[in-house]
Structures are given as structure tokens and as C-alpha cells.
Nucleic acid binder design. Structure first.
Length: 749
DNA sequence: CCTGACACTTAGCATCAGAACC
DNA sequence: GGTTCTGATGCTAAGTGTCAGG
């Protein structure tokens, strides 16, 4: 079955980041560090081919003439819709009955919420206990004040620790509540402010630094920066010219005049004692006694309880990153011009605090002051500061499990669902636009085609020299694509080769339609390799156009949509009701992989990858042998049973059969883990769940973030602790269970 | 229109703890 | 009981997209 191609495809065999391999990506700048590139995989091709064909089929089905008319109709309808609530885009436009959306399920929960949204003028829904009238007449949903204080008192920090874990209270089903409108993000916000990085502890005097072979005592400031470098000594970063240059320049800024005059050559600096010292320290940390470890854990927990939560409206919500980023050396990804620069220590006077006026403001450390205390409830952050490398603003915000993030996430999928309803129309339109007389429209249409078909990112412009040279769709340059009128028996093939987000290489060869091909030829005419492919297009223009096609539509919605729909289709295609559980899981993971491929999600092979892969393969082989042995045995027992015709030999046959089943399951499980080890982190889990319309009420969500980024799973958790038992008892874990649940719903398609 | 500031999402990698394995 | 494997979590860089102001 075709899944096998997806399973454990060659990505990791040829994608090892560290192996050098020359390829033709021509860079603006230097052609250094190419080894870092990750290499594409042939899966990608197969997959896009398939997708392509599917789309073709689709196109033929719905006669485009009709579509065209529809387009106009819909346009009119849209303008009649009038204003829909903006902020929380959930508000479904006044639904016309004629759209039975049988294709996917909205869970009852969702429908309920949407309904609420519609008649949100009446307050009658409110839980009595929460009602406390405020002065404004607008819809009130969340009542700070009284309720708030109650909660506050109920949760003194001291005993919070165990309690908070053990009795998770009733979970708050924010998704059943109404939402703020008009850009208000909260009414009440109180928190303790950030946790600063621990102050620098000077090295013990026996740990020495040498310059040109001679011991040299550094000033604390210079020494601190030196330790940053020393800690990275084993990393290949420190061998790079740019890194070293940036580091040395910034280091010198921290030196005393004397040090500055003495230390003029980084090559002559010897950090090895420092480096060894830190290694020894981390060894020591590992070797700590249980008690000591527990102590640290407790201390962390205390800090978490104290600083890791805030009070937003009536609820105690987890903060995502309450620790301020510690100073260190900047590690950009890819060929970053600023790698090695000193990331400054953040002080209270750099910090802007955001909270409600009527809250207890966080105190700056004794003897210091905040830069500013602000009360802006149109934003979601609690703390911000400006970082010194790029000059960008960093924020402390809430955890993905929070209402504020959950709502956003939900909204994102709702938008993707809306796209599903009109994607045909949009596709028809951009295909029309390939023929437009206007260059800018053609470019827009071709770019959109790429974004849709290949799930490329939008590609905002970036400031040259400030970041690594990466591109997205709109910022593609001529040098990033190659055209082949004919390639490997296919017509009109476009070869993409560029560095995308995080300097991950995107390599793909795709056959495109003739019109697209011709257009590309046109766009490339008389251009230099480093000219923009779409010179009449940028993301703003594109998004403006998309906005006209559907409210809330932007380029990134296509990624969400296509990832989701791909998962859905793959699941449908790969799974069948008769399979046993492990087989279903394998299929599920294969479907996931298809999405990862579509989105070009990649991850570096872990350091131990090669070895563990071999181990795994060995295990798989062993199982396979075991299986064939078992089958042979079954045969002989069957023969035996035929001759003897007694109970005992019949039983033997049964036992053998059972054994085979078990082995088969184990084999599949091993294959699954092989597959999983090649799956990168991604948003897939969220995808699967939210897209399929599963919500917390319907299924016990894991609250915590991550796993291929279930990072943004909303909702309550009652589950985590039971998961472990679950796994040992039943041999499969929470994810499996989640899958089984999803699977049962998929069958409803 | 263009630009920069700002807010917020997305995503890869590091680290750590507990489970599985031997 | 040590070692390896896995998944959870933390961290933060790098994107997307909006908006105000010139």
C-alpha cells in the first residue's frame, strides 16, 4: 500500500543536517555553511503529485462555468452580510440554511457557542454566582471584583502547591462562555511580574582564563561574557567566523580599558578551564542526591506557584514564560549575521508591566524601578521588554491552555473551516487570473496557487543584513526556482530550492499547469537571479486581495486549511474500520507524516539517531523473523491437528494463532515508533483535534502543551495523571486513545 | 502607498524526568 | 541497577499580520 512510501521515508537518510552536500542553492551572499541545509525528500514529490491529481479531479467535477456564476453570486452575498463581529471572528455570518456542512463535524459544543454568540445581547445565560453588575451596560461576561477576591483568598500561595495539583477545581469551560468584543482582552489582570535571571556568580579563583598562554584575571563583567562563550565551546557555532567576530566585538565592549588593550585576538584566548568547570558542574548536578534534587524541584515549584500564574478576570491562568530570558550569546538559526552577539541582561528598568489599574501591581526588586506600568486591556501580554539584538519586543504571555490563547486558536480553525466552504471558488478565481492582462494580478494568482498547492508561507519582506537570508512565497527570488519544460517524463516541472523559516531548506520538484509555467517564464524574463520573482507582489497586497475574497482570509489560513484537510483525507484513505488498533495508529501516524511533509516540517536527526534507528530496525527484523517462525509453527500445528483431531491439538492451533496476532501487533507498534522518530514537531495534534471539531467537553484533553505541539490545545485536563497507569495497563497511551476517538469520528465522514 | 512599531503565532532545539529495556 | 529511549516541557528565534502615521 502506498502508505509504505510515506512510512519512514528517505527524509532522514538524506536529510542529515550536518552532512555536507553541495547543491545548487545560490545565495545572495556567501555560500558558507551549506552543510547546515536539510535536504528534501522524495516523499514530498509523491505526495504533492497525489494531491495535485486530487485537485485536478475536483476541478473537473465541478464545471467551472457554474462556478464562475457562483462567484458573482457569492460576492454579492458577501457584501450583504454586513459587518460581522470582528475581534473574535467566531461569529458565523448569518447562516443561510442552504449550506448543510456535512463534510465535517462541528461538535455540539461549538455550535452551542456560536449560537450564544449570536444572541449575545441577552445576559440571561450567566451563572448567577458570577453576576455582579458593573457600570457599563455592554454585555458583561467576566466579572472581576468580588468573585475574584474570593478566588484569591481561596488560593494562598503557601498551600497552593499540592492542592493546586490534586484538586484541579472544576475545569473552566471558557469555550462555553461569551467572548469579549471590541478588542478588549480582559477586564482584570493581576500578576507578580517576571522572574529575573539569577545574578552572575563569579568563577572560583582556581578556574583560570589564559591569554596567549598567560593567566589573566578578568573583571567580573568581562568574565561573565567570557563564560557565555566558554559554555558553547563544544558547539560548532564557536568555530564560525561571524560568530567569533560578533562575539569578540561585543565582549570587548564589556572589558575594562586595560583588558581591551591586552586582549586583541580571540584566537589567543583559552577558555578551556572555564569550559571544563561548567562541564564538571553539570556532571555534579546530574550526580546530586535524591534529596538535593527534590529540594531544587520544590524550589522551582514554589517559584512557579508564585510567579507562574496570573489572575485574569475570574481565573487563575498559567503564564507561559514568566522567566526573563537570561543574558547570553545570540544564536540565530542558519546563516545569521548577528550570531554571537551579546544578549544583554534585562533589568527592571527595561521592563514594562501591564496589569489592571485596580490590581495589586507587581513590585520591582528592592531598589529598582520598572520602566513603566501600563494598563492596556487591548493586549494580552503581562510584561514586555525590548531585546537588544534585533530591537524587537519580547513579551510574557499566557500559556496555551489559557482562555485567551485557546480562543485565538479556536478562531484560527474556524477561519480555516470557512475557507473550506469557499476554497473552490477561490481556486477557480485564481486560475482565471493566470490569464489576466495585468501582470500584478497574474503574479498574485500564481503566488496564491503556490501557497495553496504547496502550503508555502506568505513571505514577508525582511530587512537585509539583519537576519538570515530566508524567503517565503512572495519573497521568492528568481534563483530559487528552476523551470523544466520536461523532467523525468513529466511536463512543466518547477524545481524549488530555497531556505524558508528557520533556514530550513525547502526542496521540491512539482509539475504545474502549463499556464503557471508560462507565467513563471514571463516573470523571470530579463531578471537577475537575485531579483524578486514576484516583483509586483508582496504580502500586504496579497492579503488585501484575500480579504476581499473572504473575511478574515490571509495567506497563512491556507496552511492551516491544507494541513487540516490533508490530514482528514489521509486518514480517510489510509485507515479502515477492520484494522486492529496498532494498525490504526500506524495509519494515523502516516497521515500525520503526510501533513508534516506538506508543511515541510523537519527536524534534525537526534545525535543518537543513527544508532537508535539501527536498533529499531534490528528489532523490527527480529519481530519479523519471529513472525515467520510463528507462522511455520502454526502450519505444523494445523497439520498436526488434522491428523490427531483431538482437543489438545486444536487448542495448540488457537494458541499459535493468538501468538501470531500478538506478534503482528508488536511488529506494527515497532514500525510506528520508527515512523514517529522521524516525525517532527508540528501542530498536527491540535490540527487533528480541532479540525475534526473535537473539544474538551467531548474528550479529555491533555492540558499541557507540546507533543507534536498539542501546544495549543485548549481546555481542562483531568487526565494526565491517569495516563501513565493507562499505558502500563493497556499497552497504549493517551495519544492512542485520542487517536481512537478521532478515528471513530472519522468513520462518520 | 510605504514604513516601522507592535502584537501574536509558529516552530525547532535543548533539557530533563520517567519508562522501557537489558 | 545502569543505560537508553521517549515524551513533556522550556526556551526563544523567526515568522505572519495589523495598524497608525507620514
Amino acid at each position: 500500500m502506498s502508505g509504505d512510501q510515506i512510512d519512514c521515508g528517505p527524509r532522514f537518510n538524506d536529510s542529515h543536517k550536518y552532512k555536507e552536500k553541495e547543491h545548487k542553492h545560490k545565495d545572495h551572499k556567501k555560500d558558507k555553511e551549506r552543510e547546515k541545509l536539510k535536504h528534501g525528500n522524495s516523499d514530498l514529490k509523491d505526495f504533492s503529485d497525489k494531491k495535485h491529481k486530487e485537485k485536478e479531479k475536483m476541478k473537473h467535477k465541478d464545471g467551472s462555468a457554474d462556478k464562475y456564476k457562483d462567484k458573482h453570486k457569492e460576492k454579492k452575498l458577501k457584501s450583504l452580510d454586513g459587518k460581522v463581529k470582528k475581534e473574535n471572528g467566531f461569529a458565523s455570518p448569518p447562516q443561510v440554511k442552504s449550506e448543510p456542512e456535512e463534510d465535517f463535524f462541528s461538535s455540539p459544543k461549538i455550535e452551542k457557542s456560536l449560537k450564544r454568540e449570536r444572541d449575545n445581547d441577552n445576559d440571561s445565560d450567566f451563572k448567577p454566582k458570577k453576576v455582579k453588575i458593573e457600570n457599563d451596560k455592554k454585555v458583561k461576561k467576566r466579572k472581576p471584583d468580588e468573585e475574584l477576591k474570593k478566588t484569591k483568598n481561596k488560593r494562598p500561595v503557601a498551600d497552593g502547591k499540592k492542592k493546586a495539583k490534586k484538586e484541579p477545581e472544576e475545569k473552566w469551560k471558557w469555550w462555553e462562555e461569551e467572548r469579549y468584543t471590541d478588542g478588549v482582552k480582559w477586564k482584570f489582570l493581576e500578576h507578580k511580574g517576571p522572574v529575573f535571571a539569577p545574578p552572575y556568580e563569579p568563577l572560583p579563583s582556581n578556574v583560570k582564563f589564559y591569554y596567549d598562554g598567560k593567566h589573566m584575571k578578568l573583571s567580573p563583567e568581562a568574565e561573565e561574557v567570557a563564560t557565555f562563550f566558554a559554555k558553547m565551546l563544544d558547539h560548532e557555532y564557536t568555530t564560525k567566523d561571524v560568530f567569533r567576530k560578533n562575539f569578540f566585538k561585543d565582549w570587548r565592549k564589556e572589558m575594562t580599558a586595560e583588558e581591551k588593550s591586552k586582549l586583541t585576538d580571540l584566537k589567543k584566548c583559552d577558555f578551556t578551564e572555564m569550559s571544563d568547570y561548567f562541564k564538571a558542574q553539570s556532571e555534579a548536578r546530574k550526580a546530586m542526591s535524591k534529596d538535593e534534587k527534590l529540594k531544587i524541584k520544590e524550589e522551582n515549584e514554589r517559584l512557579l506557584q508564585q510567579y507562574g500564574f496570573c489572575l485574569m478576570d475570574n481565573h487563575r491562568e498559567r503564564i507561559a514564560n514568566f522567566r526573563i530570558e537570561p543574558p547570553g550569546l545570540f544564536r540565530g538559526r542558519g546563516d545569521h549575521p548577528k550570531m554571537g552577539m551579546l544578549k544583554r541582561r534585562i533589568r527592571p528598568k527595561d521592563i514594562i508591566v501591564n496589569c489592571s489599574k485596580d490590581s495589586k501591581h507587581p513590585e520591582p526588586p528592592p531598589g529598582t524601578k520598572w520602566k513603566e506600568v501600563r494598563h492596556d486591556n487591548k493586549v494580552t501580554w503581562l510584561v514586555s521588554w525590548t531585546e537588544n539584538i534585533q530591537g524587537s519586543i519580547k513579551y510574557i504571555m499566557l500559556n496555551p491552555s489559557s482562555r485567551i490563547k485557546g480562543e485565538k486558536d479556536w478562531q484560527k480553525y474556524e477561519t480555516a473551516r470557512r475557507l473550506k466552504k469557499c476554497v473552490d471558488r477561490i481556486r477557480t478565481q485564481y486560475r482565471e487570473d493566470w490569464k489576466s492582462k495585468e501582470m500584478r494580478i497574474r503574479q498574485r494568482a500564481v503566488a496564491l496557487y503556490f501557497i495553496d498547492k504547496l502550503a508555502l508561507r506568505a513571505g514577508n519582506e525582511k530587512e537585509e543584513g539583519e537576519t538570515a537570508d530566508t524567503v517565503g512565497c512572495c519573497s521568492l527570488r528568481v534563483e530559487h526556482i528552476k523551470l523544466y519544460p520536461e523532467n523525468d517524463g513529466q511536463e512543466f516541472v518547477v524545481e524549488f530550492d530555497f531556505l524558508g523559516k528557520d533556514s530550513i531548506r525547502y526542496y521540491n520538484k512539482v509539475p504545474v499547469e502549463k499556464r503557471v509555467f508560462k507565467n513563471l517564464q514571463l516573470f523571470m524574463e530579463n531578471k537577475e537571479p537575485d531579483d524578486d520573482l514576484f516583483d509586483r507582489l508582496n504580502t500586504a497586497v496579497l492579503n488585501k486581495h484575500l480579504q476581499e475574497l473572504m473575511e478574515g482570509l490571509t495567506a497563512k489560513v491556507f496552511r492551516t486549511y491544507n494541513a487540516s484537510i490533508t490530514l482528514q483525507q489521509q486518514l480517510k484513505q489510509l485507515t479502515s474500520a477492520e484494522e486492529n488498533v496498532p494498525a490504526k495508529i500506524l495509519s494515523y501516524n502516516r497521515a500525520n507524516r503526510a501533513v508534516a511533509i506538506l508543511c515541510n516540517h523537519q527536524r534534525a536527526p537526534p545525535k543518537t539517531f543513527e544508532k537508535s534507528m539501527q536498533n529499531l530496525q534490528a528489532k523490527i527484523d527480529a519481530k519479523r523473523d519471529q513472525l515467520s517462525d510463528a507462522k511455520r509453527e502454526l502450519k505444523s500445528s494445523k497439520a498436526d491437528a488434522k491428523v490427531r483431531r483431538d482437543e489438545k491439538s486444536k487448542k495448540a492451533v488457537d494458541t499459535r494463532k493468538k501468538a501470531i496476532e500478538r506478534i503482528e501487533e508488536q511488529l506494527i507498534a515497532r514500525r510506528t515508533s520508527r515512523l514517529l522518530s522521524a516525525l517532527p514537531s508540528s501542530t498536527i495534534w491540535t490540527l487533528a483535534s480541532l479540525w475534526l471539531g473535537v473539544r474538551s467537553g467531548a474528550f479529555p484533553w491533555r492540558r499541557s502543551t507540546t507533543k507534536p505541539s498539542a501546544r495549543s490545545l485548549p481546555g481542562p485536563l483531568t487526565w494526565q495523571t491517569t495516563t501513565l497507569n493507562f499505558k502500563s495497563k493497556f499497552g497504549f497511551n493517551y495519544d492512542t486513545l485520542l487517536f481512537l476517538f478521532l478515528f471513530s469520528r472519522i468513520l462518520c465522514f
